[in-house]
Amino acid sequence: VTVDIKGMEYHFDNPEEAKKFAERMAKELGGELKVENGTLKVE
């Protein structure tokens, strides 16, 4: 699973970990979490 945090890509084997990480980063950065082509994106 790929997580894109404002252009920086992180790769996770575990989808649950990827989702938790993306949600935490969205909250910390005040960004919006989206799913695009199987990639979790925070913008």
Rank of each mutant, 00 (worst) to 15 (best):
V1Q: 07
V1D: 02
V1T: 12
V1H: 09
V1K: 07
V1G: 04
V1E: 02
V1S: 08
V1W: 14
V1L: 12
T2K: 13
T2W: 11
T2I: 13
T2Q: 05
T2S: 07
T2A: 05
V3E: 00
V3Y: 00
V3P: 01
D4K: 15
D4T: 15
D4A: 14
D4E: 14
D4Q: 15
D4L: 15
I5H: 04
I5Y: 08
K6G: 15
K6Q: 14
G7N: 04
G7S: 02
G7I: 02
G7D: 04
G7M: 01
G7F: 04
G7V: 01
G7R: 00
G7L: 01
M8R: 13
M8K: 14
M8S: 09
M8H: 13
M8P: 03
M8Q: 12
M8D: 10
M8G: 04
E9V: 13
E9P: 04
E9K: 14
E9I: 15
E9W: 11
Y10I: 09
Y10D: 02
Y10V: 07
Y10L: 06
Y10P: 04
Y10C: 14
H11G: 03
H11Y: 14
H11K: 07
H11R: 07
H11Q: 08
H11P: 05
F12H: 00
F12C: 10
F12W: 00
F12L: 00
F12E: 01
F12I: 01
D13R: 04
D13P: 07
D13M: 07
D13G: 08
D13S: 10
D13L: 08
D13A: 10
D13T: 10
D13F: 06
N14V: 05
N14C: 12
N14Y: 05
N14E: 08
N14R: 03
N14H: 07
N14K: 03
N14I: 05
N14S: 13
P15W: 15
P15D: 09
P15M: 15
E16H: 09
E16L: 08
E16Y: 09
E16K: 07
E16Q: 09
E16S: 10
E16N: 07
E17V: 05
E17A: 09
E17N: 05
E17C: 12
E17R: 02
E17T: 06
E17S: 07
E17Y: 03
E17Q: 08
A18W: 01
A18Q: 00
A18E: 03
A18T: 00
A18N: 01
K19H: 13
K19Q: 13
K19M: 15
K20W: 06
K20V: 08
K20M: 09
F21E: 02
F21N: 01
F21L: 02
F21Y: 04
F21W: 08
F21I: 02
F21A: 03
A22S: 00
A22V: 06
A22T: 02
A22M: 08
A22K: 03
A22P: 02
A22L: 09
A22G: 07
E23F: 00
E23H: 00
E23I: 03
E23L: 02
E23K: 02
E23A: 02
R24W: 09
R24L: 11
R24V: 09
R24D: 11
R24P: 01
R24C: 15
R24S: 11
R24T: 11
M25D: 00
M25A: 06
M25F: 04
M25T: 03
A26D: 01
A26W: 06
A26M: 09
A26R: 06
A26Y: 03
A26E: 02
K27R: 13
K27W: 10
K27T: 10
K27I: 12
K27H: 10
K27S: 09
K27M: 11
K27F: 10
E28L: 14
E28V: 12
E28R: 10
E28P: 02
E28Q: 11
E28G: 05
E28C: 15
L29F: 08
L29W: 05
L29M: 10
L29G: 05
L29Q: 05
L29R: 02
G30Y: 06
G30D: 09
G30C: 14
G30Q: 08
G30I: 03
G30M: 08
G31D: 05
G31L: 14
G31I: 10
G31M: 12
G31C: 14
G31R: 03
G31E: 07
E32I: 14
E32N: 13
E32P: 03
E32L: 12
E32Y: 15
L33N: 04
L33D: 04
L33C: 13
L33V: 15
L33K: 03
L33R: 03
K34L: 11
K34S: 10
K34C: 12
K34H: 11
K34G: 06
K34D: 05
K34I: 13
K34F: 12
V35N: 10
V35D: 09
V35S: 10
V35G: 06
V35M: 11
V35H: 08
V35P: 05
V35F: 13
E36V: 14
E36L: 10
E36T: 09
E36K: 08
E36G: 09
E36M: 09
E36A: 10
N37E: 09
N37A: 04
N37F: 03
N37C: 12
N37K: 08
N37T: 06
N37L: 08
N37P: 04
G38Q: 04
G38H: 04
G38N: 09
T39I: 15
T39M: 14
T39L: 12
T39A: 10
T39P: 05
T39D: 08
T39N: 12
T39E: 08
T39S: 11
T39F: 12
L40C: 09
L40T: 06
L40F: 05
L40A: 06
L40Q: 06
L40W: 04
L40H: 06
K41Q: 08
K41C: 12
K41P: 06
K41T: 11
K41I: 13
V42S: 05
V42D: 05
V42F: 02
V42I: 11
V42H: 03
V42M: 02
E43Q: 12
E43G: 11
E43M: 14
E43S: 12
E43N: 11
E43D: 11
E43R: 10
